[in-house]
């Protein structure tokens, strides 16, 4: 069977890219962190939720041909390291395009997409992906 609570508790970050900001050094984290890796214990209790805009830039990308089951219908698909406007770098799919139309440096923005499904009767997992601006 599939996973429920594990996916459910991440929804704020998966659905609308909620990250957090260290109240001590102002560094923004996405995915959110419980503790700031710069300020360590000085950041305890000071991590505040912050909305990530979703705009970013491709730092590197690959075209995946050997795909896990959840991604078979989309292969080959593009996975990229995206540097967000707010600073963090994250890993995500680039969709609605072809590899020839993107490159390192391409500006992208986040979109809300289906990521995977727990079979035909399980829940559907949604999250962020990116499209070229």
């Amino acid at each position: 069977m599939g996973e429920l609570s594990r996916m459910w508790r991440e929804m704020p970050s998966r659905y609308r890219m909620q990250g957090d900001r260290c109240g001590n050094c102002d560094q923004v984290y996405f995915p959110p962190r419980e503790i700031c890796p710069v300020c360590h214990r000085d950041s305890i209790g000071k991590m505040k939720d912050v909305d990530i805009d979703g705009a970013g830039e491709i730092l590197s990308f690959t075209v995946v041909h050997e795909a896990p089951p959840a991604f078979l219908r989309q292969k080959p698909y593009i996975i990229a390291l995206v540097k967000l406007k707010e600073g963090p770098v994250i890993t995500g799919q680039i969709v609605d395009t072809v590899p020839e139309e993107i490159d390192i440096g391409t500006k992208v923005r986040s979109v809300f997409r289906k990521i995977s499904e727990d079979g035909k009767s399980g829940v559907i997992h949604y999250g962020y992906k990116f499209v070229p601006e």
Binding site: S60, A67, I79, T91, H125
Partner: peptide
């Protein structure tokens, strides 16, 4: 095999170990 990378924030989004190596390689 994708369990050896971050399941929530890499593998969940479709990154495999080979994909991550490829990201390093391209850069």
């Amino acid at each position: 095999t994708s369990s050896l990378v971050d399941r929530e924030w890499e593998a969940f989004n479709g990154a495999t170990p080979a994909a991550l190596a490829a990201l390093s390689a391209r850069k």
